[in-house]
Write a protein that binds this DNA or RNA. Structure first.
Length: 173
DNA sequence: TCAGTGATTAGG
DNA sequence: CTAATCACTGAG
């Protein structure tokens, strides 16, 4: 077994509600195998939860489109999209089929900022839909649960209105 | 503080 | 087809 396979998180971790999965992702180790076979790893330090069709901050609240399609799939897949023409936003799909939810990875130990995270791991559009429980090039490994978890409001979603903007769905170490 | 950058989306 | 929007970053 190659490193990363033995402690890889399995389906059951992801097929729970996003508000349970998001804080549980803190301390877990995001891992990417590059084309040259080196593996980049870093523990997750900050995430945000986006929860289904009611959450106006969630892309899936506008319905099923080519971009949001994977959020309607069973948890454990990658949802990644380009923002401002420059930055890739890496998300983990959670919950069960037809319940669109995702967790945005905002920070890892090596760097902070969702755009920087994707650059650090060299992930882009080609990772859209990749299955974290099966993929040979991206997975999440078990890691130490942080002793303390903080919460706050999600960032950059002014368009979603006061109610959704004020949900404390950002989790960080 | 603010421009850059291009995929995605709704609307004609 | 067009135009607006955008879960951000880095330079000034």
């Amino acid at each position: 077994m190659k490193p990363g396979y033995c402690d890889r998180l399995t389906r059951g971790f992801y097929t729970r509600d996003v508000l349970d999965v998001a804080p549980d992702l803190l301390g877990k180790v995001l891992s990417v195998r590059l084309p040259d076979d080196t593996v980049v790893r870093s523990a997750i330090t900050e995430v945000e939860a986006y929860r289904g069709d009611g959450d106006l901050a969630c892309h899936a609240s506008k319905g099923r489109t080519d971009r949001t399609e994977v959020m309607f799939h069973e948890g454990g897949k990658v949802y990644i999209y380009l923002i401002y023409g420059i930055h890739w936003m890496l998300n983990v799909v959670t919950s069960t089929e037809d319940v669109p939810q995702a967790v945005l990875i905002r920070g890892v130990e090596q760097c902070y900022g969702p755009g920087r995270v994707s650059r650090f791991f060299s992930v882009d559009r080609s990772y859209y839909g990749e299955d974290l429980t099966l993929s040979p090039r991206i997975w999440i490994a078990d890691g130490d649960k942080p002793s303390q978890i903080k919460t706050g409001c999600r960032i950059g979603i002014d368009y979603a209105g006061d109610y959704w903007k004020s949900r404390p769905w950002r989790f960080f170490v």
